[in-house]
Design a protein around this nucleic acid. Structure first.
Lengths: 126, 126
DNA sequence: CGAATATATACCCGATTCGGGAATATAACC
DNA sequence: GGTTATATTCCCGAATCGGGTATATATTCG
């Protein structure tokens, strides 16, 4: 899941909203860490709808300005939950590696005869 | 930061590794949640090197097979740390919204005269 | 009144990224 | 001898992101 998609789903997880409101909501939620562009938003909403994660939730005209509302489907909510879990897993992985742990050294299948230095790798375009 | 880039940086955060070992390392780290393709890996490493996040760390020939080693730069380690923080922020945001909280309702600038129903939005290609 | 700004949606199109397919090369296993 | 594992690279199409711009209306400022 891309970051743009994630923020849109998260914004909608709070309830029905129209496009522009999602934009401002994400701005607040992400607090500068990421801004979604207008073009990305509407393109993403189209894709999310196509994929059954989001659906129309009525149109309204407020002060002459037409608003199109969107809401999460059950599937959308589910995939946001799943993404949250993956996020947590990624966070744990990064923290453990950044915490100074040794890498679980990947051992070669057999005793290795190692020749260091400049070995011209085949097709190696410098 | 894309997920592929994140996993590669995390793998390298444990220490110097060559391409194929990164691949297996990520497989283990992500435990099925995501697999990086070979093509993605080498293309990403090129980009990471270009961007100063990763650098060459020598070539070796082990059992006749040429290996190209990579390691994180300080900048690379820093951007992984930064990404971990953003990950945590995203996780908190998703959890709070999924936890059933109401959205902070975004209020229109003035008293709204709302007309519900089918209002033909301009240029609305159904 | 006219200009600028905020709200709200949509189209066009280039740049980046991802990933499938395949090529190359060697060692090990059956 | 063929398959599998190791290890890197090229080609190229598909998806996504985002800048620029167009459209439309209401409000605010000079």
């Amino acid at each position: 899941m891309t970051e743009a998609i994630f923020w849109i789903l998260t914004a909608l997880a709070g309830g029905r909203q129209h496009g522009y409101a999602i934009l401002r909501d994400v701005e607040q939620l992400a607090a500068g860490s990421q801004t979604i562009r207008v073009t990305t938003l509407y393109a993403s909403l189209e894709r999310l709808e196509r994929d059954g994660k989001v659906r129309h939730a009525g149109d309204e005209t407020v002060d002459g300005r037409a608003r199109r509302y969107y809401e999460l489907t059950d599937e959308g909510r589910q995939s946001l939950s799943a993404e949250a879990e993956r996020l947590a897993a990624r966070l744990r992985a990064a923290e453990s590696r950044l915490g100074g742990r040794r890498p679980l050294s990947v051992k070669p299948a057999s005793a290795a005869r190692v020749s260091k230095g400049q070995t011209d790798l085949p097709g190696l375009a410098t």
